Simulated assay, not measured.
Amino acid sequence: MGLCPVNGWVYKNLNDARRDFKPIALIGMFPLVLVESPGSRFSSLTDLVAYAKGHPGKINYGSGGGERVNWTVVWTSSVAAAS
């Protein structure tokens, strides 16, 4: 559905994705993985979140882009209360 759920909050008079559309096929699945260099100090997501909480603004990330990746990072940061 992509941005369909978000668009309803931004634009008026749009289709309601749940009411006006129905799924007919799963085209693909896009798993996301978190990777790091072998010499990293982190051995788990818990370690990374703990470091981020103790060192605000010191964590950077890189990605190939796309809404799914960017929203996942934003969501993870908000859940972990780390920026």
Score class of each variant (00 low, 15 high):
Gly2Tyr: 01
Gly2Cys: 04
Leu3Ser: 06
Cys4Gln: 07
Val6Pro: 06
Gly8Lys: 06
Gly8Phe: 04
Lys12Asn: 10
Lys12Glu: 08
Asn13Ala: 05
Leu14Ala: 02
Asn15Val: 05
Ala17Ile: 01
Arg18Glu: 08
Arg18Ile: 03
Arg18Met: 07
Arg19Asn: 13
Arg19Gln: 13
Asp20Met: 05
Asp20Ser: 05
Lys22His: 08
Pro23Cys: 00
Ile24Pro: 01
Ile27Phe: 00
Ile27Arg: 11
Gly28Phe: 10
Phe30Ala: 14
Leu32Val: 09
Val33Phe: 03
Val33Ile: 06
Val35Gly: 10
Glu36Asn: 02
Ser37Phe: 03
Ser37Trp: 04
Pro38His: 10
Pro38Tyr: 09
Ser40Ile: 04
Arg41Tyr: 08
Ser43Asp: 13
Ser43Arg: 03
Ser44Thr: 04
Leu45Phe: 14
Asp47Thr: 12
Leu48Asp: 04
Leu48Ser: 08
Val49His: 01
Val49Asn: 05
Ala50Pro: 11
Ala50Gln: 14
Ala52Lys: 01
Lys53Gln: 15
Lys53Gly: 13
Lys53Ile: 00
Gly54Trp: 09
Gly54Val: 06
His55Asp: 14
Pro56Trp: 02
Gly57Asn: 03
Lys58Gln: 15
Asn60Gly: 15
Asn60His: 13
Tyr61Leu: 12
Tyr61Cys: 14
Tyr61Glu: 07
Gly62Trp: 14
Gly62Ile: 15
Ser63Val: 02
Gly64Asp: 10
Gly64His: 10
Gly64Tyr: 08
Gly65Val: 05
Gly65Met: 04
Gly65Pro: 13
Gly66Gln: 05
Arg68Val: 15
Arg68Glu: 13
Asn70Trp: 08
Trp71Tyr: 15
Thr72Val: 10
Val73Ile: 13
Ser77His: 04
Ser77Thr: 11
Ser77Glu: 15
Ser78Asn: 11
Ser78Trp: 07
Val79Pro: 02
Ala82Gln: 08
Ala82Tyr: 02
Ala82Arg: 02
Ser83Thr: 12
